[in-house]
Every structure is written in C-alpha cells, then in structure tokens.
Amino acid sequence: MQNSHSGVNQLGGVFVNGRPLPDSTRQKIVELAHSGARPCDISRILQVSNGCVSKILGRYYETGSIRPRAIGGSKPRVATPEVVSKIAQYKRECPSIFAWEIRDRLLSEGVCTNDNIPSVSSINRVLRNLASEKQQMGADGMYDKLRMLNGQTGSWGTRPGWYPGTSVPGQPTQDGCQQQEGGGENTNSISSNGEDSDEAQMRLQLKRKLQRNRTSFTQEQIEALEKEFERTHYPDVFARERLAAKIDLPEARIQVWFSNRRAKWRREEKLRNQRRQASNTPSHIPISSSFSTSVYQPIPQPTTPVSSFTSGSMLGRTDTALTNTYSALPPMPSFTMANNLPMQPPVPSQTSSYSCMLPTSPSVNGRSYDTYTPPHMQTHMNSQPMGTSGTTSTGLISPGVSVPVQVPGSEPDMSQYWPRLQ
C-alpha cells in the first residue's frame, strides 16, 4: 500500500499530492522566468500547473527564495509595531506611495530583511487598517496617535501638521516623493554593498519588468496595427511575429492590442446598429396606417339613396333571421326581375335548405315592403301603392349592394327569390 497518492495534472505532468515540487523543477521555473518566458509558457514547457508556477515565482520575487514554506503551523507575524509605524510614516510623507514602493524602502533602510519582509498584500492590509482606524477615531485622537508614531512633539492640530517642515499644504506631496526618490538612490547604494547585491538587483529588475506600465504606442505603430486590423481581426502567430519585427513591439503586446481592438470594434458596431435601427424607425405612426385595407374592405359607393341603408337594423327591421341572411350572402350585381318571367313554384328541397333563413311567422307573405323604405322617402312611396304591378321595390342582398326588384302586385311571395340566388 502506497503512503502517498501520485497523479497526472491537466498538462500531463506527474505530481505527488500534498508534497511540494522538487527543487530542480523550481530552479528551472526561475531560470525560464529570467530568460523572459511568460508564466503560461513555463507552465506548458515544464508541465506544471499555472497556479503552481505563479505561486513559486511570486514567492521568489518577494523573498528571493525558491524553497517551499513549512507545511503546517502558523507563519510568524511580520507586521510588527515597528514595521507598522514605518509604513504609516512613509504614507504620511508621500500619500500616493504604492505598497511595493513601501516594501522596497523597508528593505533599503534595513527595517526588514528578506526573511521577515511583509508581502505587498500585508502592507496593503496595514494601510487599510490605518485608514479604518482613522475613520473610527476622532480628529484629536487621530492626531495624537500619528504624533506618537512619528515621534515628534510638534502641533498636529492642523492639517499642514501632517507634513512636517512644510508650510504650503500643496507642497508636502512633492517633497515626500522627492525624499522617497532619494531613498531609492540609497536603495541602490545599500544593496550594492550587501553580499547578495547582484541577486537582489536582478530580482528587482525582473520584478519591475513584470510590473509594467501601460504600453505607449507611437503613431507609426498605431498606423501599422490599424492597417493589419483592417486586413483581418484575428491575425495568426506568423502575422503577429512579422508585425512585431516590423514595428519593434513584443508579440504578446500585439496580441493584447488586437484583443482590445476587437472589443472596441464590437462596441462601435453595436452603436452603429442602434443608430441604423433608430433612423429606419419613423418618429410617429401615421393615422391612416393604423387601418389596414386588408382588414377593412372598402364599401362601394351607393348608386341610389335607398342603398345607403345596408342592414335591417338601420331600417328599423327587427327580424334577425333576414338580417343574418342578407349579411351572409355574397355580393351580387344589380339585376331586375321582369313581370314576364315565369313564376316557378319553389322546389321543396330548395325551400327546406333555406328554411332556417325565413321567419317562422306566416304573415311574411302579407307584409308590405314599406318597412324598408327610409324616412325621407315615405311620402313618395305612399303616393304609389304597392298593389300595382309596376311598383318597384329595392331588396338588399349584402352591405353596400342594392338590387332593384320588380315585385308582382298580386302576391309578394318571398319564396320566388331563392331559386334565382343559387
């Protein structure tokens, strides 16, 4: 039975679970980093996980050691009161100082060594604690504590007292930064006198190289990059290397530039699409467009005044059976039934097929058609009795279509119309 579990990581490298990497692998990681390889490249070359490479390099940059820390136990506290007071002093002298600059000053002034120097995250935590204590304490208590930490007896009751030896409130920041720059020169002199001055200088240079600022491109470089971006948004590694040799930039910087440029292009394309949609959409909808001609068919113009009344309900007709019959029939052209047409008796099958359309009241044959006459024609229609054979009435077949029909004066039988409509 094995005491430890061995495995293979996602890159194909072998590791022992819970145990640190061998010293030979750690040394190779540092050597590759000094030669300029990126952590992701080191991870692929040595088949070590990216997190492990970053952790080893980060500890090497901070402490200069590649040895693993002790497994188990607690780390001794490195942010001692003396170190905290120095950090507060540096922050007062130059409020814009960075944590890694404070760390360098602690090393250069001999406050800490490589073994007990606090990390950048520890210094940031100390600065946050100082800021929170400043908010919790009152103004007087804060000034007393700062005077105690600074070891001075001057008056701290006013704002300019934060910067000793100065009279203009805006000047101390520059003086403090100048003092810090002077301390940086002392850093070089002190570290050069040490035993491991060369190694420390190499480590600091490598650290500065990794902690780079934003790349500033010249106009020629920007023009070359934009020209390549117009050709393709995704250049391959050969195109990037050719462009890197042409404009004297690292291939990694060119790759990052193209990634950022593609993101910018997507944002601009989104804005262009929004403007295009806004320009195509009308600002207001016309009133006429809300009524579609496919839904509402136009009603033909009436030929006679009587045809303006298109349904039985508008003429005072309360018989719903006839109203439904007229509205359900398709529109037909106007025609006239003459008196000489043969009077065919209704076929029983045809009569039964339209039995649902006729009223059940037996008085329908005896009703006159003056009910369908509009009010303004009552006088004219009353002067001509319906009993004469020459009287013409208008029957409504569908809305908007008038059918003048000659009705025999002897017997106005409704059943004569249905064979004609089939």
Rank of each mutant, 00 (worst) to 15 (best):
N3W: 10
N3H: 09
S4D: 11
S4K: 07
H5R: 06
S6N: 13
G7C: 06
N9S: 01
N9K: 01
L11M: 11
L11R: 07
G13F: 01
G13E: 02
G13C: 03
V14S: 09
F15V: 04
F15S: 03
N17R: 00
G18W: 01
R19I: 08
R19K: 15
L21K: 01
P22L: 06
S24A: 11
T25I: 11
R26D: 00
K28A: 10
K28M: 07
L32Y: 15
L32P: 03
S35E: 13
S35Y: 11
G36N: 14
R38Y: 06
D41S: 15
I42G: 02
R44T: 07
R44I: 06
I45D: 15
L46T: 09
S49E: 01
N50M: 15
V53W: 00
S54F: 05
L57K: 03
R59H: 13
R59E: 02
R59N: 05
Y61R: 04
G64N: 05
G64H: 12
I66F: 13
I66P: 05
R67V: 13
R67D: 07
P68M: 02
I71E: 00
I71A: 06
G73W: 01
R77K: 15
V78G: 02
E82D: 14
E82W: 08
E82T: 07
E82A: 09
S85E: 14
S85F: 14
I87L: 15
I87D: 03
Y90H: 08
R92Q: 08
S96Q: 14
F98D: 02
I102T: 05
R103L: 07
R103F: 04
D104I: 08
D104M: 13
L107S: 10
S108A: 15
E109L: 13
G110P: 07
C112H: 15
T113C: 11
N114W: 14
I117T: 06
P118H: 03
P118R: 02
N124Q: 00
N124W: 00
N124M: 00
R125C: 00
V126L: 15
L127N: 08
A131W: 09
S132E: 07
E133I: 12
K134V: 13
K134E: 15
Q135V: 14
M137Q: 09
M137K: 11
M137H: 09
G138W: 14
A139G: 14
A139R: 09
Y143P: 08
D144L: 10
K145S: 08
R147S: 10
L149E: 07
N150Q: 15
